[in-house]
């Protein structure tokens, strides 16, 4: 019952898939966070009225299934004759998807800084930039970091969908092995365990920060 046709090179194949998952996640989260911080500051500075177009555009990324976004992104790049490889397309779409969620987190973080604190900073002669850098950033990061970690985990899980564009990441790699070895349960359990091992420590760390930094106690 416990015999399996899985070889070491198959495990290496799975590990390669996991590496692809991590690469897509790292690139998308990095780019998405930079964009998210930018959009979040724009949304906060311009107020709900002037930033309404941006809000609407970002809301689309949160209300349309990621799979459809990926298909559309791929179709669009081939229509525009960009000639992007699937990796680039996946990263671009996932970055925008991440940015849409990150914007909300950043905006919420900036919102949580009391106005009086910022006024105090400005009346001490700090410039807008200094206020942002030395007053808002440390306070906002404290509030937003737990949800940012949650977002990172979410993007890592959602990155499984890039298999639709032909990228061989962890889930696709295990699916290929399933097709070849016909041991679906064992290989899928292995795949799930790898996902679990990657995300559980980060999730625990996020929960720890949340409890440690909880503003109300």
């Amino acid at each position: 019952m416990f015999s399996t046709a899985l070889t070491w090179s198959d495990l290496a194949f799975l590990a390669q898939g996991a590496g692809m998952t991590l690469a897509v996640t790292a690139v998308s989260v990095a780019a998405g966070t930079v964009l998210g911080i930018l959009f979040g500051i724009i949304r906060f500075q311009f107020g709900p009225y002037w930033s309404a177009p941006l809000t609407f555009a970002l809301d689309i990324f949160r209300s349309v299934p990621l799979l459809i976004q990926l298909v559309l992104g791929n179709a669009l790049q081939s229509i525009a004759k960009m000639g992007w490889p699937p990796f680039t397309t996946s990263c671009v779409v996932l970055s925008l998807y991440t940015a849409a969620y990150c914007t909300e987190i950043v905006r919420g973080g900036i919102d949580s800084v009391p106005v009086n604190t910022r006024r105090a900073a400005r009346s001490l002669g700090m410039s807008w930039w200094q206020d942002m850098r030395y007053i808002v950033a440390p306070l906002a990061i404290r509030v937003s970091l737990p949800s940012w970690i949650g977002l990172t985990l979410g993007v890592m899980k959602d990155s499984a969908l890039v298999l639709w564009l032909g990228l061989i990441e962890l889930l696709r790699a295990s699916q290929i092995l399933v097709t070849r070895l016909q041991e679906p349960l064992f290989i899928l359990l292995l795949c799930g365990a790898i996902y679990f091992v990657i995300s559980l420590p980060i999730a625990r760390f996020g929960r720890y920060l949340e409890e440690r930094w909880s503003p109300n106690d």
Binding site: K157, A160, L171, P184, L188, Y195, F196, S199, L200
Partner: peptide
């Protein structure tokens, strides 16, 4: 709760579709 939250939804669907085939 931990498995549902720490693995992709697509993985869970695969598990139901392919994984249960073992049984």
């Amino acid at each position: 709760v931990e498995v549902a939250r720490n693995t992709p939804a697509l993985f869970q669907i695969y598990m139901a579709h392919f994984g249960l085939g073992n049984f």
